[in-house]
């Protein structure tokens, strides 16, 4: 019982501290779960990250569920997941309720002036990261191109023609807003699998 409660509190703490989305969780997890609590080894953590990236769902929830299960079975998994999400539940609702009141204040307007373009920059970065997992075979080797790479990259960089086609078609369809996101996702999954079947990629 104590164990389950401990899991809940620990993940609440993680939920409070992960500023800037789930990626901020990785260093927190390594610090607390691997180095301090010894709940798992770094090797196991690496495996878990790989599993989380390949399975659907937010990576942070995947990891919390996995850790919780390791420590306390299904109740542990549940407590870890709930604990991770509880802080933001209250914080987002609080923000939504108070934002209306402070919308016109100088401080909030200043924060928004900075956050809006910052968001554009972050989304641009997310776009590049997505393309490096689909349209491009690997990360763009800009260091090699600039001649400042410390060691030659392991995987060859090339562009996947079918992926480019899907990318452009999806952009056009979703920009117009005529086709729903789910149809686009299923359509591209089918095209991608078919392409693999006939040897295109």
């Amino acid at each position: 019982m104590m164990n389950i409660f401990h899991i809940f509190l620990l993940f609440c703490y993680f939920g409070f501290l992960c500023f800037g989305g789930g990626n901020a969780l990785t260093p927190l997890y390594i610090d607390h779960l691997v180095n301090e609590q010894h709940w798992m080894t770094l090797q196991e953590f690496g495996d878990l990250t790989a599993i989380s990236q390949m399975t659907p769902g937010p990576i942070g929830v995947n990891a919390a569920t996995f850790f919780g299960f390791r420590r306390g079975g299904i109740p542990g998994a549940l407590m870890a997941t709930v604990g991770l999400l509880v802080p933001s539940y209250f914080l987002v609702i609080l923000a939504l309720r108070s934002l209306k009141r402070w919308e016109k204040s100088f401080l909030v307007r200043g924060i928004m002036t900075g956050i809006h373009p910052a968001t554009t920059g972050m989304i641009l970065a997310a776009l590049l990261i997505f393309m490096q997992m689909s349209v491009f075979s690997t990360e763009i080797p800009w260091k090699t191109w600039l001649g400042i790479a410390e060691n030659a990259s392991q995987t060859e960089f090339f562009i996947r023609p079918l992926a480019v086609l899907i990318f452009c078609a999806a952009t056009a369809l979703l920009y117009k807003g005529k086709v729903s996101i789910m149809s686009v996702i299923f359509g591209s999954a089918a095209v991608g699998a078919l392409g693999a079947a006939v040897g295109l990629s």
Binding site: F167, T171, S201
Partner: peptide
């Protein structure tokens, strides 16, 4: 096939991000 489907979905989601931008 699973990998092909995954690449397809990620390409489409790249399109979703670009359309929003």
């Amino acid at each position: 096939y699973v990998q092909g489907a995954f690449i397809g979905v990620r390409s489409a989601l790249g399109g979703l991000v670009l359309a929003a931008l």
